[in-house]
């Protein structure tokens, strides 16, 4: 649009010369900027890994930013045992796994009804579910807390799993719809002719073909549960049920003056995510893009 209204370029020779010149200096500046930003992003993570293996003497003066002189793996042992990180880790896994499973089942079924079955209110219902993308979790915290406490479900895994699944649902349906619309409807038709009912089509055709969607939703949902603090902090106060974010908060209160075990706890909580990211970086990035751009 605006490009066309520009004056025709009469000095293309000079312009080209200028382009080259700025490009050269520009290129160097670009890489300096990128290198600087890389440093700002990697340094805290590097620092976390190194201080998780140091004792206070090194962290507090002798060797603030270097690699540890003595690799103190005992920090990890104390974080795991005295700091209960092993319990928190398992809790986080249980909560995340159950949330992912419930989200996937509910989202697959709902998306199938919304996009493959023919009925009047399908569009309206879809729009209704999509409201979930903009509702902040704050909105429901008081009623959920009161209800959970009335039915004595505070301090259970379910107190986190059900809210997490509900809040992950809108995004999961959104991602599912995108993938499901890529499956040709002819397949449904062929299966119907072969005598499949709606459930047969769902289980034999749709679910097996939705595997890539499941991975995308699984990753996205995993990150939401793994990192969530507000609900976890309020709904589960018992030590045996805490997830990693709340557990780390507890542990850092316990080890205010001994930084090594805290560093170890931080690494333990972060390591699985980064490990998966190294192998699946593209897919993880795609799951974030799919969620935001289509929404």
């Amino acid at each position: 649009m605006t490009a066309q209204t520009r004056e025709p370029d009469n000095f293309s020779f000079g312009a080209q010369y200028q382009v080259k010149k700025t490009n050269h200096v520009g290129q160097v500046l670009v890489y300096i900027f990128l290198a600087l930003w890389t440093f700002i992003n990697l340094f805290p993570i590097y620092w976390m890994f190194t201080f998780s293996l140091k004792d206070n003497k090194e962290i507090f003066g002798e060797n603030v930013a270097g690699l540890p002189k003595h690799w103190l793996w005992s920090n990890y042992a104390s974080a795991m045992k005295t700091g209960h990180m092993s319990i928190y880790f398992i809790n986080s896994i249980i909560v995340a796994a159950a949330t992912i499973l419930i989200t996937l089942i509910a989202a697959l079924m709902a998306t199938y009804a919304l996009t493959r079955l023919v009925w009047k209110l399908s569009r309206a219902t879809n729009a209704f579910f999509m409201m979930g993308l903009t509702i902040p979790i704050h909105a429901s915290i008081v009623p959920i807390y009161v209800t959970l406490s009335n039915i004595h479900m505070l301090n259970t895994y379910w107190a986190l799993i059900i809210p997490y699944a509900a809040f992950a649902l809108a995004m999961a349906i959104l991602i599912c719809s995108g993938f499901m619309s890529d499956i040709p409807k002819d397949l449904d038709e062929a299966a119907r002719i072969d005598g499949c009912g709606v459930w047969g089509i769902f289980f034999r055709i749709i679910v097996p073909l939705m595997r890539p969607a499941l991975a995308t939703i699984g990753i996205y949902t995993f990150l939401q549960c793994w990192n969530e603090l507000m609900f976890a902090n309020i709904f589960n106060s018992k030590d045996q049920l805490k997830t990693l974010p709340v557990g780390i908060q507890a542990l850092s209160g316990q080890y205010t003056t001994n930084w090594g075990p805290i560093g170890a706890a931080l690494v333990i909580a972060t390591f699985p995510t980064l490990f998966v990211y190294i192998f699946l970086s593209r897919r993880i990035q795609e799951s974030f893009i799919a969620g935001a751009i289509k929404g």
Binding site: A110, Y112, A113, W119, F128, F129, P143, A166
Partner: peptide, 25 residues
């Protein structure tokens, strides 16, 4: 019936945890 069964898990979660609590808030 099938339609309702397919929608049910999602609707229960969504209405129970998001919509009803907002009204309650």
């Amino acid at each position: 019936l099938n339609l309702i069964l397919f929608l049910l898990p999602g609707l229960i979660l969504f209405v129970g945890v998001l919509i009803a609590p907002i009204a309650l808030s």
